[in-house]
């Protein structure tokens, strides 16, 4: 019993320490935010790495998300709801929820874990100490460009995922479910709300911040050589994924 209480206590303390560390890092990043303009080369380098290089995986995620959404929505509504609503149902599901969340979860693995591994390797090989010894603030030089690049690239990537998802859903409807294009898109304009798109993009913005912040935080705190870098990579993905799902719930309760 005492062991269980001690274990719980340690878990709570760890959580508080982790959360405190995240907020402290966020504060330091925001303090250096005006430097993004001066360090725009670093920002663009990260924007290409996080945004441009993620395009293939985002297209894959989007296309299959849309395809499976259309197929399963058809299965669920067939016989109860007219099939002309299939396009609308898929559109809403993709824009509000599936696009931002699935893209964020995939990028937590591709981008967040890669940031944690890169900074973690720099930490254990003393490269971060070397940077600091050159009187260069490591948060300003390493974390700020990554944070803002992820923050601004995520909405763009989610928009791309939304488009490809809808295209994937349309192709499945047209080729496999025999729903004509005009029917598939017929109900979307009637129920279209700009706010749905905005809400999805705000989610993407928040998720981008979570992914990069967690990656940087865990990367900076890496210790224990190659094994430590491996642990950081996993921890970064798990913590990002959990925080993305919690943030998704909180934002859903605020927006809808």
């Amino acid at each position: 019993m005492l062991d269980a209480i001690a274990h719980l206590g340690r878990a709570v303390l760890n959580f508080i320490r982790e959360a405190g560390g995240l907020f402290l890092l966020l504060g330091r990043i925001l303090r250096f935010s005006p430097r993004v303009f001066k360090d725009r080369d670093l920002f663009f380098e990260q924007a290409i790495n996080i945004g441009y290089n993620s395009i293939p995986i985002v297209i894959m995620v989007g296309a299959f998300t849309g395809a499976v959404s259309a197929w399963q929505t058809n299965y669920q509504i067939e016989g109860y709801v007219p099939l002309r609503y299939l396009g609308l149902a898929t559109f809403k599901a993709v824009v509000i929820e599936l696009g931002p969340v699935l893209t964020a979860l995939i990028l937590a693995g591709r981008v967040g874990a890669s940031i944690a591994a890169e900074l973690g390797t720099m930490r254990v090989t003393e490269q971060i100490d070397a940077l600091e010894s050159l009187a260069i603030n490591s948060v300003r030089y390493l974390a700020v460009p990554r944070f803002f690049a992820a923050l601004f690239m995520m909405p763009a990537l989610v928009t791309l995922a939304d488009f490809t998802a809808i295209a994937g859903a349309w192709l499945v409807a047209l080729l496999l479910l025999d729903i004509p294009t005009a029917t598939f898109f017929s109900e979307i304009p009637k129920f279209f709300r700009v706010f749905d798109i905005i809400a999805g993009l705000i989610k993407a913005f928040v998720f981008g911040g979570i992914i990069s912040l967690v990656g940087c935080h865990i990367g900076f705190r890496t210790e224990g050589g190659a094994e430590g870098v491996g642990r950081s990579t996993i921890r970064s993905f798990v913590l990002s994924a959990v925080l993305i799902l919690i943030a998704d719930y909180l934002l859903a309760t605020i927006f809808f």
Partner: peptide, 27 residues
């Protein structure tokens, strides 16, 4: 004050992603 120091680390700690030129020019 740190600008008064130059440090050679045990593992040299060169920045992997940069060339020799960039490593030296960074400061």
């Amino acid at each position: 004050v740190r600008q008064k120091f130059g440090v050679l680390f045990q593992s040299a700690a060169l920045f992997d992603s940069m060339t020799v030129y960039e490593n030296i020019a960074l400061g």
